[in-house]
């Protein structure tokens, strides 16, 4: 097939068209203030394509902030379970390669000891249209965790910028191929690739730490006083974990009245003070640095033990969103340095 291009106008038209179909859910980049967010689109959404990276990740499309997992009614015959709304096909447009590469990681987890039918069903039905990176900032470090600005992992379609108003499309998966075929009337823009695009290459984002060394250091240094330093500024909110493409913890709550109820899966975060509070009153992670240690250790040590991969895509969102100035890259570089110095 000939090369396929799409420009801003056609992308807007395509997403607008998809949004009209109530049988699918569409997520795309929407501007708010100075920032861009991946949001669920409706007819009034104002799309924006001139952004470096969205504040949030595409996680929300596949793992909603809250999601009913059980509904019931009680009457004099007993308890009846009610049907849950069916998972609709999804289109997620505008994430970066550091978003999409989280999906195979998350799949391992949600396919592990318990099959999370909600996540897996969405994953089956989603089309991930990723826009390769054309910019970077001091918080980016995808290459240190095996990614790159044009990494294809997890995407169905990868768009690469060829000029200031459009992209060249590349199908990565079968799903992606079909999507391009079905929407070929939008992927037929006549664009002339301009000089100077793409603006960044893989070598622009240097590898700055060795994740193997970091894992070993974490294993040997649970009690290191450095953790206190790393977590010193942390105020224990969940902003970092909620914008993270790979943080996936959730809490289950029940909302019940006399005759009906709904059980819901809600985002939760290891950085919040009450995450590990026991019924006894004891909290094994009572201090903020202990909670922050958990966040880093989970991504760079425990997840590797379980699934053979670092659970971080190097997007840097946690650092950008942290107004207390906790910077994951600074911390990982410091651990790398310590590990090199200490030899273990």
């Amino acid at each position: 097939m000939a090369e396929q291009y799409i420009d801003y106008d056609k992308a807007k038209e395509m997403l607008g068209n998809l949004t009209k179909n109530s049988e699918i859910e569409v997520f795309g980049p929407v501007k708010k203030g100075n920032d861009t967010f991946i949001s669920k689109l409706n007819q009034n959404s104002e799309l924006s394509f001139d952004y470096f990276i969205t504040v949030n990740s595409i996680k929300e499309a596949l793992l909603p902030r809250f999601e009913p997992i059980l509904k019931y009614r009680i009457n004099h015959n007993g308890v009846t379970l009610e049907d849950l709304p069916p998972v609709k096909p999804l289109v997620v447009f505008g994430g970066r390669p550091c978003d999409a590469s989280s999906l195979p990681l998350m799949k391992k987890l949600f396919n592990w000891d318990f099959k999370d039918e909600f996540y897996l069903e969405r994953l089956k039905k989603v089309i991930i249209i990723t826009i390769a990176c054309d910019e970077m900032d001091e918080n980016c470090f995808c290459t240190s965790v095996g990614g790159s600005p044009r990494n294809e992992t997890g995407s169905d379609v990868l768009l690469e910028r060829v000029c200031s108003t459009g992209w060249k499309a590349k199908a990565i998966s079968e799903k992606g191929k079909n999507f391009l075929k079905e929407n070929s009337n939008f992927f037929n823009a006549k664009l002339t690739p301009e000089k100077g695009y793409p603006k960044i290459a893989e070598k622009d984002i240097p590898v700055v730490f060795d994740s193997k060394k970091i894992k070993t250091w974490i294993e040997n240094n649970f009690e290191s006083p450095l953790w206190e330093e790393f977590g010193a500024n942390c105020l224990s909110c969940a902003a970092c974990t909620f914008v993270c493409p790979t943080c996936h913890c959730f809490d289950i709550t029940d909302d019940a009245s006399m005759w009906k109820g709904v059980r819901t899966k809600n985002w939760d975060a290891c950085t919040l003070p009450y995450f590990t509070k026991h019924a006894s009153g004891h909290n094994p992670r009572s201090q903020s640095y202990q909670r922050y240690r958990q966040r880093i250790s989970h991504k760079y040590s425990y997840y590797i033990d379980l699934f053979g991969q670092v659970s971080c895509t190097g997007c840097g969102r946690c650092s950008r969103v942290c107004e207390a100035g906790v910077n994951i890259l600074d911390i990982l570089k410091r651990i790398d340095k310590e590990a090199t110095k200490g030899g273990k």
Partner: peptide, 12 residues
């Protein structure tokens, strides 16, 4: 509707 309940407002 955009609140993600991260409680950053509370913690800060």
């Amino acid at each position: 509707s955009q609140c993600i309940r991260c409680y950053a407002c509370r913690q800060v």
